[in-house]
Design a protein around this nucleic acid. Structure first.
Lengths: 246, 246
DNA sequence: TCCATTGTTGACCGCTGAGTCAGTAATGGG
DNA sequence: CCCATTACTGACTCAGCGGTCAACAATGGA
């Protein structure tokens, strides 16, 4: 059978490549350095990857595949999911908010677990060759937001005079920045309360007066078991140690 | 006196460099190509710039210098400016909103006029060497937002329970994304109504109930000469052709 | 017109680093 | 133990490109 290959070789090389890409950027990272960091030789690198760019692509694509799997799991955006139903009255709001919050938490948890790759992509992947990946992802997020907002306006959840295009920029930009911050933070963060706060900010920006009143009254009536997804404002509740800069 | 230098040489080279950096990115742009595009020789390039990176730095720094001048002009953030006064009651709100909107319009107009350089920086400057410039600018914007939010909370304009750190991420991220979109759009846009819409979204997210009520009543009372900075909602007003994707 | 001075050119140099490949090491089967 | 087979090594090649400089061009003053 011949000499068996070291089963760790490729993993070691991928890890090392990730670290070098993060530190130097795709263009300035040297294959030699990646190999040394992985404790292998340059030749070993080329046994597993056709080129430096190929290694980068493999890292990012495997992460994106897992992200897609995470997003499809649950499938609330799918036909039959809650965000495609057109028959919800305002009363359906609480369920919508809960589903929205769950999805946010799910995505941010994924981002947190893959923060090394995300940082590499965002900071080390500043290459003209692959920068389009980030833009493409941003654009996809935004078009999802457009769909969601238009749907929410039809349902009466959001202001009828909402400029959906502009609001989608504002909201997706907001989430984007929060995610970028999350990716850089080190300590463990309780994501759900943070997501709920973001949701509350966004809701304040876009919700229709009727929906805002409903949410407000529901929160008050349902104490002390508040509707999931709506944080109870008030000084008694201890502030969660949030995502703070430095 | 000897041969006089071509006065257009440096400008031509800067323009060409800008275009090449945008098209290929700093790392992949070739000095040769820049020179050819400018109708000059490679040697001429090195008469004006110490290196490729030096040219990039000169383009960005001259733009940043003009931006700083624009921001300082007016100086509402300076001591004595409206955003440093601690004695404004809620009644001072309209002035604050007007000043805020003016500043936004001013900045977005600058971004629009310098959109070529901004695009170059955002899209072509994806280099590990200069990427920090973007992050630094984002961080500065955010810390300004933190100061502004904390001040507004003290003044009673914004919700007392606002998580200033998180909200600053959300808001600066929102503005960032709007600016990035603006930079890519081609046609002329009437910036003030767009800025007013963004302001209204942000206000909805963060303003205190008392302030929101005040703003709302003022808008209603002051018709048909609305308070600058507050757009009158209503179906009669024609929708401005917004910033639309593709 | 001639020359000193300064501007401009582009062939050339040298370095860096991606990618190769002849040689060596490790393994399992016979 | 030997050999076929596959894994792995790292010195080497070489293309590409940043940066240089000897030669040449343009100009104004004497």
């Amino acid at each position: 059978m011949g000499r068996p290959s070291d089963p760790n070789a490729k993993i070691d090389l991928l890890r090392a490549a990730e670290a070098e890409f993060l530190a130097r950027g795709l263009d300035h990272a040297k294959v030699e350095d990646i190999a040394v960091r992985a404790g292998r030789s340059k030749g070993a690198f080329y046994l597993h990857f056709a080129s430096k760019e190929d290694a980068f692509r493999q890292i990012v694509e495997s992460m994106l595949a897992r992200l897609a799997a995470t997003l499809d799991d649950g499938g609330i955006f799918d036909p039959g999911g809650i965000f495609t139903r057109e028959d919800l009255g305002l009363a359906g709001g609480p369920q919508v908010l809960a589903a929205w919050l769950d999805k946010d938490v799910q995505i941010f948890e994924f981002v947190w677990h893959n923060r090394r790759v995300f940082r590499m992509l965002l900071e080390g992947g500043r290459s003209a060759t692959f920068g389009y990946l980030i833009d493409e992802f941003a654009e996809r997020t935004r078009s999802n937001t457009v769909r969601f907002l238009a749907w929410g306006v039809r349902q009466g959840f959001f202001r009828a005079d909402l400029d959906v295009d502009l609001a989608s920029l504002v909201i997706s930009g907001a989430y984007d920045r929060v995610a970028r911050h999350l990716v850089r933070s080190d300590g463990q963060i309780d994501l759900r309360p943070q997501c709920a706060k973001v949701q509350r900010l966004v809701l304040g920006a876009i919700s229709s007066p009727a929906f805002a009143a409903l949410v407000d009254s529901q929160v008050r009536n349902w104490n002390p078991a508040p509707l999931p997804g709506i944080e109870v404002p008030g000084p008694r509740r201890p502030r969660t140690a949030g995502t703070r800069s430095r």
